[in-house]
Design a protein around this nucleic acid. Structure first.
Lengths: 231, 231
DNA sequence: CGGGTTTTCGACTTATTATCGAAAACCGGG
DNA sequence: CCCGGTTTTCGATAATAAGTCGAAAACCCG
């Protein structure tokens, strides 16, 4: 490391990823099982130490690559940095957490110690990772409603019914398909394609397939509150 | 520092504060002038090194106390952590930035090297502090419209006209007093007191004084988009 | 072809935001 | 004390957004 030329300590710095995906109608997080103390047997967020010349985002990508193919990550954004001196019983450690999203339908192959866990029935979780997961979930829920973040949870094309299930799983409450379609279309977030999905075996009208208009994060709500007296 | 028991470097970690206040109708940021290289003569955000057993928030409070009385800070929240290896030309350094807000009307006494600068006419700024300031401004603007964050910018009591000017300065565009009053009252963000403000010398109807209902951050927008089919 | 199923869409209601202008309440001066 | 000038407040209405409902569309199978 670089030498220290002024007062102040130096800190072991770790990056962590909260990788979320909707699987079988439930929001899941990617965790790996610790094989040694502390928290032996408990599950932890993937991540690892920040490298000497890395930036946080790059470092996260490097560590994450050991768990899932990076091409499967549709969205990555910094969440928050935790600094409680006691968060790791072994030593002082600062950790920066990221939120990462994987589109539904993908099923990356995982190392043996790694698995998806539903957010509403988490196993014993190591360190302060439980509260970090909660932060990530809250951030996802908030952004789903006022941005086009859904693009990162959905496959390239989908029906409104499929999208409704995705949103319901992520938001944690039932969602109206009619409203979802109307609101997202009006906001320009999703647009119909010219293809339709074949009905289920039981029949039913074939559903139009939609796609997200953009795959870059964008704020879509009015949010222009208290607008100027206009021109 | 604690010894390192696994691979990975150790990083000098700094906390920074973007202290914002509306002064004379413009959003200002608190900066201090660097007396030595690098960036000698340029202006920088207040802050300093993270202490060995401190958490980030505590550390920020300590460093900030050297610039302004902490009691003047109405709101403090973590913004983001910067990790570009080249952000400080001297050495590798990770920095976590916070957003801090000071209510209008306060005029903390400042050290000689420290001053308020309007955001729209910043002097030369050191390191990557310019882009951190921009992030802080964006965060403030977004939260002003869907939370009650305004409480941190406003004095304990105020008239609607005063509040309009505060919001206009922070948002960077004109604001309708009528809408502001109606929306914030309906959302339960502000409430009238029983006192009125004396009119100006030119006369005019005396304005009723309002106050923020809560002084804790709270999300106030509908944001419950795509609500469930209800019970 | 007819009953069963799922999606789509129009029509309506409710909620929220924006616009406008008149009324309220005060000042100073004649 | 009345009057024009000023600023704030508030009601009426328009515009936009969101939520509800149910019928029509489009498909399955036997």
């Amino acid at each position: 490391m670089a030498s220290i030329s002024r007062p102040g300590g130096s800190f072991y710095h770790e990056v962590l990823a909260v990788v979320l995906q909707v699987r079988r109608g439930c929001l899941h997080v990617l965790l790996w099982r610790r094989a040694r103390p502390p928290f032996e047997g408990a599950w932890a967020l993937p991540g690892g130490p920040l490298g000497a010349d890395e930036r946080l985002g790059t470092s996260l990508g490097r560590h994450l690559a050991a768990k899932v193919a990076l091409t499967e990550i549709a969205q990555l954004e910094q969440l928050e940095t935790r600094s409680d001196p006691d968060r790791d019983p072994r030593q002082r450690e600062v950790a920066t957490a990221y939120l990462a999203l994987v589109a539904a339908g993908l099923d990356p192959c995982l190392p043996a110690d790694t698995a998806w866990h539903p957010l509403d029935r988490l196993p014993a979780v190591a360190f302060d990772h439980g509260s970090i997961i909660a932060s990530a979930r809250d951030r996802l829920r908030a952004k789903l409603s006022y941005t086009n973040l859904g693009f990162a949870l959905a496959p390239p094309v989908f029906t409104v019914a499929e999208l409704r299930d995705l949103y319901a799983a992520a938001l944690g409450h039932p969602v109206s398909a009619t409203n979802l379609q109307r609101i997202l279309v009006r906001r320009g977030v999703i647009a119909p394609t010219d293809e339709v999905a074949p009905p289920s075996a039981a029949g039913g009208r074939p559903a139009t397939r939609y796609r997200f208009a953009e795959r870059e994060l964008r704020v879509t709500n009015p949010l222009a509150a208290f607008r100027p007296p206009s021109p």
